[in-house]
């Protein structure tokens, strides 16, 4: 614990002595990821990374509310599903292009988040979590029984000529790869700036101690709603992406509870309340699940969930702040060694 004081707060505070590779590693990694689809050419490989980016984006969106503002939601599938349904219904029923639908999806998710957030933010801790589960289940049941939205059978999106305008690509998955990569870049950039702004400070203050936050003039309900709205917006946008990617949505693939769990699991495993935690989490958990499915096929159905359980236990025992905390701990130890060495010279 003591060594963390020398470098940075666990909450992803700007490091006093910036990690020298941060300015180099991030652009390099981004370049590598941009080149990836041309190095690895199999559709499976593209599909894998699209899912990684999608879940990293979702984890990052959850991170704003759950990680920084400390309001753990287990109902994010509701925002995801509403985003997916909004754009799909606009497309299927009114022929509106999915790009407009994406914005609409995000905004509908925001509206829903405010509706859910206002009453449930009166609850604290576990009770808030339970409220989010229940409200998301209500949305699930509503969509399952809503004939206009396809009910339990779901909605098939029309096959349109492929192209950017239609947001459909059939011959190759590469365009999807870049679109979701861009979404991840945007949401991560937003979190990067939020972390350093008044908003980020207020979010963290609310997470650390709501009473103290209020005594410093923070209207905590208002700021929790802002966090929730930001989080829901990007989750809804991801929902639209998903609908365009699989071209079929039903309550079970876009509104179910396990999706909410996964959206929470990724940042918590990687390190919630940190900028890189959700990305790290997605890069580990999603391939794990995809590879067990590939190599063990049907027999490996639940293997990924078993492994998730094991990993979560390990993280809970050895580093409850998530995997990114292990990285920062290693980094701060390096800094300490370096200082000691320098002081000896």
């Amino acid at each position: 614990m003591a060594d963390t004081t020398l470098t940075e707060g666990a909450a992803g505070a700007p490091a006093r002595k910036p990690f020298p590779l941060a300015g180099v590693a991030v652009p390099l990694l981004a370049l590598a990821l941009l080149a990836y689809p041309f190095v690895f050419r199999l559709p499976f490989q593209h599909n894998l990374m699209i899912l990684v980016f999608l879940y990293a984006s979702l984890g990052q969106a959850w991170n704003i509310l759950g990680g920084y503002a400390g309001q753990s939601s287990l109902g994010h599938a509701a925002f995801f599903g509403v985003g997916a349904y909004a754009s799909s219904l606009l497309l299927v029923k009114f022929g509106i292009v999915p790009w407009v639908g994406m914005l609409a999806g995000g905004l509908v998710a925001v509206a829903l988040s405010l509706l859910i957030g206002y009453p449930s933010f009166r609850l604290k801790g576990h009770y808030f979590v339970i409220a989010t589960i229940v409200l998301a289940e209500i949305i699930y049941i509503l969509f399952t029984n809503w004939p206009f939205a396809g009910g339990a059978e779901g909605l098939f999106l029309p096959l349109l000529p492929e192209g950017v305008v239609n947001f459909e690509f059939h011959s190759s998955k590469i365009p999807y790869y870049y679109i979701i990569f861009a979404i991840l870049a945007v949401v991560t950039t937003v979190v990067f700036f939020v972390e350093r702004s008044k908003l980020g400070f207020y979010f963290r203050a609310i997470r650390e101690d709501p009473d103290a936050a209020r005594s410093l003039g923070i209207d905590i309900t208002r700021y929790k709603l802002i966090a929730m709205a930001l989080s829901a917006f990007f989750t809804g946008v991801c929902g639209t992406f998903y609908a365009q990617f699989v071209l079929f949505i039903e309550p079970n693939n876009s509104l179910n509870f396990m999706l909410s769990v996964l959206i929470m699991l990724i940042p918590v495993f990687g390190g919630s309340g940190t900028l890189w935690g959700p990305i790290l989490g997605a890069f580990i958990l999603i391939p794990l699940s995809e590879f067990t499915r590939v190599y063990l096929s049907g027999a490996g159905r639940a293997i990924d969930l078993t492994l998730y359980g094991l990993l979560i236990m390990l993280v809970a025992i050895f580093e409850p702040r998530g995997l990114w905390a292990v990285v920062t701990r290693f980094r701060s130890r390096e800094t300490l060694k370096w200082r000691f060495w320098k002081s000896q010279v």
């Binding site: 004081t5 707060g9 666990a10 909450a11 505070a13 400070f201 207020y202 963290r204 203050a205 650390e208 101690d209 009473d211 103290a212 936050a213 005594s215 410093l216 923070i218």
Partner: peptide, 14 residues
Amino acid sequence: KSFRQMTVLENVMV
């Protein structure tokens, strides 16, 4: 009621 996971400076900045 300090914000325990934040530095002294960050606490006061809030």
